[in-house]
């Protein structure tokens, strides 16, 4: 970032915003946006509590399960679509539809079908994450060099061998990019799911905090979630960079 001709490090802008937040917090608006310092202190207070630990456990569990389902189902479906024109024609319109659809609107439907519990949260996570994973796996497979496909064929690979030993690996850079984007969407899914269900995990806490107008608690929890999402994204990006060398060497 540059400002008035000066290069500013990434942190500068963060500090600037933090200071601004702190100042706004001490004005009238502190009513809805408490000062950052107080929120951070509240964070230290909330994090060690059992209700937070429980919410974290439930959230983490439904998040990982939902993402797991999205990956295990999404990658094979995407690969199938990339390899089979029929599957592609059949599924692509749906994938594109769900990719851009306002999925939050579907959560009440899931709620009706699966109740106000973890199952609904898990499915919401999957619903949010899976489409971009499918689409990226499909793109990955379509960009595999034709000669690698012919190589597998000519050395006698069965369909399963070609899938598990060649296609998945050859498409790995795109698949991982899809999983990273899916994970980011899954964070939205898990939060929206819990907010709507509101009796599970962080949803309960958000419900309590907002109904009692505990804005410092509310913001503290939000910041924690933001930090988690950021860390997840960075972790995935790191994993992606590890396979970049062969994405470049595929030609």
């Amino acid at each position: 970032m540059t400002m008035f001709g000066y290069r500013l490090p990434m942190m500068t802008s963060l500090i600037l915003w933090a200071v601004l937040w702190e100042l706004v917090g001490h004005t009238e608006a502190g009513f809805i946006l408490p000062p950052l310092s107080k929120i951070v202190m509240r964070m230290g207070e909330i994090l060690p509590t059992p209700s937070f630990a429980e919410a974290l456990l439930i959230t983490g569990r439904s998040f990982l399960t939902g993402v797991g389902i999205a990956v295990l189902a999404g990658v094979p479906i995407g690969i199938l679509m990339g390899r089979s024109i029929i599957a592609d024609r059949l599924l692509l319109p749906w994938v594109n539809l769900f990719l851009s659809a306002p999925l939050s609107a579907l959560v009440p439907v899931i709620m009706v079908l699966f109740g106000l519990g973890e199952a609904t949260i898990i499915l919401t996570v999957t619903l949010f994450a899976i489409w971009i994973i499918v689409l990226n796996a499909r793109v990955g497979v379509r960009s595999i060099s034709p000669s690698l496909v012919e190589m597998a064929q000519s050395f006698g690979a069965s369909r399963w061998q070609a899938f598990s030993k060649v296609y998945v690996w050859a498409a790995l850079p795109e698949i991982l990019a899809g999983v990273r984007l899916g994970v980011i969407r899954a964070v939205k899914g898990v939060v929206i799911g819990q907010l709507l269900v509101s009796v599970v995990g962080f949803g309960t806490l958000f419900e309590i905090y907002s109904s009692h107008f505990l804005m410092e608690h509310f913001w503290a929890l939000l910041l924690v979630l933001f930090a988690f999402a950021f860390a997840l994204n960075e972790g995935m990006a790191w994993l992606e960079r590890k396979v970049q060398y062969y994405a470049a060497s595929r030609a």
Binding site: S147, E150, M151, F155, K165, W169, L172, R250
Partner: peptide
């Protein structure tokens, strides 16, 4: 019959050893 490809068609994620042994692996 076996084939040697113009653009090599090696698996970039596999070592030389695994690439060479791939036909036998299959």
């Amino acid at each position: 019959r076996s084939f040697v490809f113009q653009d090599f068609a090696l698996m970039p994620w596999a070592s030389v050893l695994r690439n060479v042994a791939f036909g036998l692996e299959l």
